[in-house]
């Protein structure tokens, strides 16, 4: 089903050395040791998630007919409250007006959900070619004095073309949600519930991180605690559905949250390091773009070879999670 993946990272780079100057308690190397990230790309003033998705899609369509009958855009930082940004992108990309277009709001699990939707559209015959875009600009949501999020997140956009003609196959999707964790990763204001931050307190935690309700809040330990329970269960359920054992999986691509979390999950699940893909050192956690960026990386380097079975898993904000098998 997956034919090709392309990506775009914004030009501006925020390296650990720059962050270490802002946070005197931390060195560039300490940030790398804690997160596995050396640098992240961040948008400039006026640069939107749709611009990142557009640039990725332009690379995807280079030398290829601009044909698609479904455009799915996964973002939590849309251009407008309405209309759906996917319509704006359909026009900007020069896709035919027969192309359906919609946004969906998911983060770390978003790519798996997008693959699930695209796979269903193709299998049902509702579409023959689906373009799945992911892009976010979390850097615009982060308080400058919240080092717990500023060291982790980067901005990026990706574009994936899915079609029936492709030799690759997607199957054994497992999806889930638990809204009891909604407040653990949240931007509280600018939606209908709290249009403004008026009356909501700004707090500073014991490490000096500022939590402004208009900015991204992440309770890292609680998210980690959630993944300790959710991810092993997710992996087990995907393997059971696929009637495969972990030994039969050639590569594992998880949402690239941070290296500490990934390494703990890898050990807990008994996944060999050579099968486990890490792709965050030079881009950070790019939310719904981490899995396609990692896949693009292993395709480009030749690490992903025809016939390989890949276990994909995304998990986080919502809480929301999803996993599947990609046969390349």
């Amino acid at each position: 089903m997956i034919t090709q993946i392309a990506s775009h990272l914004p030009r501006t780079v925020l390296a650990n050395e720059g962050l270490a100057q802002l946070y005197p308690d931390w060195t560039a190397e300490k940030i790398f040791e804690k997160t596995g990230i050396r640098e992240r790309h961040v948008v400039d003033e006026g640069e939107c998630a749709s611009d990142l998705a557009f640039a990725a899609a332009e690379r995807l369509f280079a030398g290829r007919a601009r044909e698609a009958d479904y455009l799915l855009f996964c973002t939590q930082t849309p251009d407008y409250l309405l209309p759906t940004t996917a319509c704006v992108l359909q026009h900007r990309l020069g896709l035919p007006t027969t192309c359906a277009a919609l946004d969906f709001n998911l983060g770390c699990s978003g790519y798996i959900y997008g693959l699930s939707l695209a796979n269903s559209l193709l299998q049902s015959g509702a579409a023959n070619r689906v373009v799945l875009l992911t892009a976010d600009t979390y850097s615009r949501l982060i308080h400058p004095q919240d080092k717990s999020t500023r060291t982790i997140f980067g901005d990026a956009g990706t574009a994936t073309l899915l079609s029936k003609e492709s030799g690759s196959r997607l199957h054994s999707f497992v999806l889930g949600s638990d809204g009891s964790g909604a407040e653990q990763l949240m931007v509280k204001t600018n939606g209908a519930r709290f249009p403004r931050a008026d009356g909501l307190p700004t707090t500073t935690d014991e490490s000096g991180n500022v939590h402004d309700p208009a900015c991204l809040y992440m309770n890292g330990p609680e998210i980690f605690n959630f993944t300790l329970k959710a991810v092993p269960k997710l992996v087990r359920e995907v393997l059971e559905k696929a009637k495969l054992s972990l030994d039969q999986i050639d590569l594992v691509v998880f949402h690239q949250a941070n290296a500490f979390m990934l390494e703990h999950l890898r050990r807990k699940l008994g996944i060999a390091p050579e099968k486990f893909v890490l792709h965050l050192e030079h881009c950070g956690n790019t939310v719904s773009s981490t899995i396609p960026l990692a896949l693009e990386g292993v395709i480009t380097t030749g690490r992903l070879k025809p016939g390989m079975k890949v276990l994909l898993a995304g998990f986080g904000v919502g809480y929301s999670w999803g996993g599947c098998i990609l046969e390349w």
């Binding site: 935690d205 490490s207 330990p221």
Partner: peptide, 16 residues
């Protein structure tokens, strides 16, 4: 060290 990374380290130790 009892900051958010410390919390995560302790959670990881308890889990492992």
């Amino acid at each position: 060290a009892w900051d958010s990374m410390g919390h995560m380290s302790v959670l990881a130790m308890i889990d492992a």
